[in-house]
Write a protein that binds this DNA or RNA. Sequence first.
DNA 1: ACAGTTAAAGTTAGCGCTAACAGTACAGGG
DNA 2: CCCTGTACTGTTAGCGCTAACTTTAACTGT
Lengths: 315, 315
Amino acid sequence: MTVSRVVNNKGEISTTTRQRVQEVIDRLGYRPSHIARSLATDRTATIGLVVPDNANPFFSEIARGVEHLAHEQGYNVFLCNTDEDAQREIAVLRSLEEKRVDGVILCSSRLDADDLHLVLAHHEAVVLINRRLEDAAVGMVLVDDASGAYLATQHLLARGHRAIGFLAGPRQSYSGQQRQQGYCAALHDAGIAPPPVWIQHCPPMVTSGKTATLDLLAANPELTALVCFNDLTAVGALQACANLGRRVPDDLAITGTDDIPLAALVTPPLTTCRVPMYELGRQAMRGLLARIGGESIDSNLVLVRPELVIRASAP
Amino acid sequence: MTVSRVVNNKGEISTTTRQRVQEVIDRLGYRPSHIARSLATDRTATIGLVVPDNANPFFSEIARGVEHLAHEQGYNVFLCNTDEDAQREIAVLRSLEEKRVDGVILCSSRLDADDLHLVLAHHEAVVLINRRLEDAAVGMVLVDDASGAYLATQHLLARGHRAIGFLAGPRQSYSGQQRQQGYCAALHDAGIAPPPVWIQHCPPMVTSGKTATLDLLAANPELTALVCFNDLTAVGALQACANLGRRVPDDLAITGTDDIPLAALVTPPLTTCRVPMYELGRQAMRGLLARIGGESIDSNLVLVRPELVIRASAP
DNA sequence: ACAGTTAAAGTTAGCGCTAACAGTACAGGG
DNA sequence: CCCTGTACTGTTAGCGCTAACTTTAACTGT
């Protein structure tokens, strides 16, 4: 027990005894087991981070922010991919429960509200990223997706565009729904009622963005601009235009969302709504630490506003 | 103890008793604690994955491969970033030790051999990715970087280039050293002795690749081709050429390494040596599972060969 | 000398599970 | 009937740490 006082710097111990014990620790090569400590203290100093795909630059930057702050605070982070599969999402949340993580950060959950309530009830501290959940004692760190898409659409309107299409993300995506609302609001405010055919859903990847753009433009050749769910789908849209011989931005102006590193590196560089993903990750970890520590929480909701970054795809 | 037999499907138990116990488990909402189980069994069913930067597409794909196979096999993965800092690398390895992970996958370690031996001695199962270590009972999954760079350089030679520069990676990078060897070997085989000024070291990022390329071309305007440490530095080289008004590939042909998604999306798309990162991750996890399971290991070394992917930056 | 206080050190039950063993019941063979 | 083997069930010490408590020693005040 004196070893515990030395290792954890807790409880009453004299300097003399501390040094004596430390020497024994060093000599015997004592290596404390956090497993035993966790069982005794009911704390593991671990958290779970659940993302749809850790290789997606949006989530990898969030993960980096989470891991950095976690490390600074003495926590280790379990990384779990859901691969956009609800069953897998439930499975990983259950395995984290058995591992008795101190808390969970869940990104862009695709579970319906009932299932989400059910499975999160077993976790004492939870922060959701990009997912709203009513009547639950969880933190939420949301991007103000509506205002981001509103900004991008307004920018295009200000440049004279009227026929503006929208590449929505996955249908179950909370972010996608919010972005669609912002897009529609900007058009309505300009006195334009966007016909449903100007809106095309697709998974959040380059290839699907390209396919969706080809479909959208085939059905709506009058479009002169396109607001995209994210930068990956926007790059797909660039590829579609290259295929069709449509110049960007002259024939079709394109905006993305997120400002992942790729956005600035493609040709032409993408106008996009910058979401501070790294900071989003840190904010979520900050909220989670507060919950784990039992601090009083001012608000369950943190709203991060995107900012428009103008580049050559829609100057 | 009968609960344990049911939950873990181990030991003798009759069908009648199993059902009876399962009903009690369901009724009471019993949720097993893997922490207690870990203390009793000396197994945590967790592993550590240590990478320089989880947001780097090379490592994020590796992480995805590791996490997928880990999940399939009932393991949870701790994600740890080293940020190219040796002290942090040691710190995370120590924290994994205290968490009693069953094994560690360590990517592109920057520790010198002595320190690496010392800190890995406390881990029973280890697989290194992109790092060779002699006299250690660890697995190693290596990319045959030398042959990759040899292929790229040979391709440029076959296209008639003679003055070929090399953007090396970080000086302490094992991959960088191997790629440099392949580059030099290809030139030597073509009867060319590459002057040291054709070789420029730089960190593995877009911005540093751009800076290094500007420096290299300023000092060596005779260069007509460039082999780059990775795709990120190659994109930096593309940017440098755009700044200098040098056309790619006509004035300077450029090759990258890794074939991260970005490589195909930039303009012009990069010729590059494709490294199957996802598969690299799965291979490493496979080797780690074999070590954790105490299986006899055929070989400590798995060598993965890159293949040349020809695109417009060096057709 | 005695009583009270306090800093420090020592002790142990308990965290929740399981490997290992002991006990029980039954079937089959001699 | 007795013995042996096997399937099954029940029991418990131990994993390594720590919160909580007890004990000890030293000091101070009366």
